[in-house]
Amino acid sequence: MTRTIGVEEELLLVDSDGAPTTKAQVILDAVQDGDGPLVAEFMEEQIETATAPHASLTDLDAAIRAGRAGAQAAANRAGARVAALATSPLPFVGIPMSTRRYLAIGAEFGLTAREQLTCGCHVHVAVADDAEGVAVLDRIGPWLAPLLALSANSPFWQGHDSGYASFRSQVWARWPTTGPTRTFGTPEAYHATVDALLATGTILDPAMIYFDARLSARYPTVEIRVADECLAVGTATLLAGLARGIVETAARAAADGAPLPDAPPELLRAAHWRAGRSGLSGGLVDPRTWRLAPAHDVVGALVEHIRDALVDAGDLDAVTDLLGALWSSGDGASRQRSWAADSGGDLGAVARRAADALLA
């Protein structure tokens, strides 16, 4: 049976000038039927939408599009716009949502929390149980950095070009539980690690387990959290299709008793940094050799690695087409930089063009 997939998108709220606007609570208070499932995120300048689980990439694409359209309809009533950006191009002062949990995080983590106006795209892939989920987590690490590169959509930070394709990944890395993980072997070892992290008193609750990929606390899924919020709907759909292929390939390898990949966390971290720095515009660390290689070659290796799973899910043609479109258009970071150049460096225009392209 084909594994279901769902996507959660964190979306930036901007005003008519393209600056982040604190309208999340106003929007949530006025949600209407048809707006879709909209929920609060950490900051008043962002909002989250989520799809139901789907087996078909075509259906998932339609659900992502409907979620974005619903978010924009709700934002319109509050005088705001929605942009699928992983960071704001313009300077901002982040305002946490006024919930007890978010205020506690703000108080505990200081500047790290205040600067977390970052938007990610999270993919949930169904697994049979925690045992299969941990077997998957132990095998997918080498292929997560290419997903970050494909989604890279945050070149600007506080009004400046950061030099990174995904500066969100740099800002996000400040939290104490982010990044790649060691192999766990069993669900008991995974949950013991979570309990140990909680026991340090460093994080407030299990929801602050921010691993690149984790067992979802709410659903029977592996949640892949490495990606930027994607500029285009098609990129989010592509990300989900690739994530499903990665999870399915790992689950098959575990069922066949294949050895674990040789993937030291130090190398995984370096590969993740390189993907955030380069996106698709430079080299990536090739998981087959742990050497720098052209991004096109590394993404091609990913597709080859999961080809059987893509074929069996009926996703190969769709993934091939979506990848072709992404190579043609460039990643989100490249497109944002192009828009900035076209507007003479007007970063507000970048945010406005992203809002215009929300459903493209």
Rank of each mutant, 00 (worst) to 15 (best):
R288G: 14
R269C: 12
A309L: 11
T200F: 02
R352E: 09
A73H: 13
T221I: 01
R335V: 14
I27H: 12
D29Y: 05
R274Q: 14
P142Q: 04
L85T: 01
R307Q: 13
L231M: 13
E304C: 07
E108F: 10
A55W: 09
F211C: 03
E108M: 15
P287C: 08
P89H: 01
H160Y: 13
D59L: 15
Y210D: 03
A270C: 06
A196N: 12
I95V: 15
A240P: 06
F42V: 06
A62L: 15
Q158M: 15
A55N: 05
L137Y: 03
A217W: 12
F42C: 06
A217C: 09
I47N: 04
S151T: 11
H305G: 01
A263M: 12
K23D: 15
G120V: 04
G257L: 07
V26K: 11
D59V: 02
V93Q: 12
R244E: 07
A69C: 04
P220C: 03
G94N: 00
L38F: 13
V285H: 01
A295Y: 05
D29W: 12
G330Y: 08
A318L: 12
A341S: 12
G300I: 06
Y190M: 04
R65I: 02
A73Q: 15
G279Q: 06
I95E: 14
F92T: 02
D59R: 13
A360P: 10
L326I: 07
Q46T: 03
G179I: 00
R274S: 04
E48T: 04
P180H: 02
S329D: 14
A295H: 11
A301W: 10
L280N: 08
E48W: 07
E8P: 10
D321F: 08
A250D: 07
G245N: 06
A196W: 10
D17W: 07
D129A: 04
Q336H: 08
F156C: 00
S98N: 13
A83L: 05
E223P: 11
L231S: 01
E132I: 07
